[in-house]
Design a protein around this nucleic acid. Structure first.
Length: 277
DNA sequence: CTTACATCCTGATTGC
DNA sequence: TGCAATCAGGATGTAA
């Protein structure tokens, strides 16, 4: 479920409580995820200190002392909850708690993912950039590498819907289903438009809307539409600022036309039929 | 290479 | 109330 703003919010919040902590021990619950957790994972992280949290696309990177990092993806339903000493009453649930780290301040960091679309694995720092997960990713949407010229080059000649294009992690890394709809609403472009037919001016509007929407969402600590929670168990507040996502048949805030919901690339896609051309 | 679609999995919600 | 159908913030593999 989490997209870039949720992972970034999680990173910022978790960093405050977890950086500097040492992993005393780890235990594994259900090991079957998108990739199975390897048998020696717990032993490999025990005794390591968390030195930094970083992020690439929707991946959280927990940097450890020594030469490895933990690469984490939350899939659709994953969470990483940090329970302090005073919260330690929650039971370990081996069905959905995949990993529990005991830290040196008696807190516990629990990685939970009921749908098991996520992953957590140890990667050598030197091999991270070329790992199968990160290797093919497009530029970070909040970096200078992403701009209208870049997007125009990628859209040129493409038949795919523009919404699918901006959700393609090889094109831009980190945009998912909620923010794709919100970005296209702000840009005034329908999600169903063929990417190659989107005009230069519209591409510029889309490229401009990307950082505006994502930064605003990060500022609100992400969107909790259903179940996203940060490491404190808190929901994000951006849901109240959503303009189209989840608002089928409700009036557009700009023109009162009912918001439509169409399926594009097997995903629900919301737009205003009047404001978006 | 591009595009379209099924598939992985479980839980919450919707509809009859 | 109960039960079945439908739907989820994602990514990938396969086939045309």
């Amino acid at each position: 479920m989490p997209e870039l703003p949720e992972v970034e919010s999680l990173r910022q919040i978790l960093a405050r409580s977890a950086v500097g902590r040492t992993i005393v021990s780890a235990r594994i619950g259900e090991a079957r995820l998108r990739r199975r957790i390897v048998a020696d994972f717990a032993a490999a992280v025990a005794g390591r200190q968390i030195i930094k949290l970083s992020r690439r696309a929707k991946y959280l990177i927990i940097e450890l002392d020594g030469d490895h990092v933990m690469l984490v993806h939350l899939g659709m339903s994953g969470s990483l909850i940090h329970r302090g000493e005073d919260f330690s009453d929650a039971e370990f649930d081996p069905k959905h708690d995949h990993v529990e780290f005991a830290l040196d301040d008696s807190s516990r960091l629990v990685y939970n993912d009921p749908r098991r679309f996520g992953m957590m694995r140890l990667v050598a720092r030197a091999a991270l950039e070329n790992s199968p997960e990160l290797k093919g990713l497009g530029p970070e949407p909040l970096s200078r590498d992403f701009n209208a010229d870049y997007l125009a080059g990628k859209a040129r000649g493409k038949q795919v819907a523009i919404k699918n294009l901006i959700m393609d992690q090889k094109i831009i890394a980190g945009i998912g289903n909620i923010y794709a709809s919100e970005i296209l609403y702000r840009a005034g472009v329908r999600p169903t438009r063929r990417a190659g037919r989107v005009t230069r001016k519209e591409i510029e509007k889309i490229a401009g809307a990307v950082p505006v929407i994502l930064r605003a969402a990060i500022g609100s600590r992400g969107t909790t539409f259903r179940s996203y929670r940060d490491s404190r168990g808190q929901p994000g507040r951006f849901a109240e600022q959503l303009r189209v996502y989840g608002r089928e048949n409700e009036p557009c805030y700009a023109c009162s036309t009912p918001i439509k919901n169409v399926v594009v690339g097997q995903r629900a896609s919301f737009y205003c039929p009047k404001c978006q051309v």
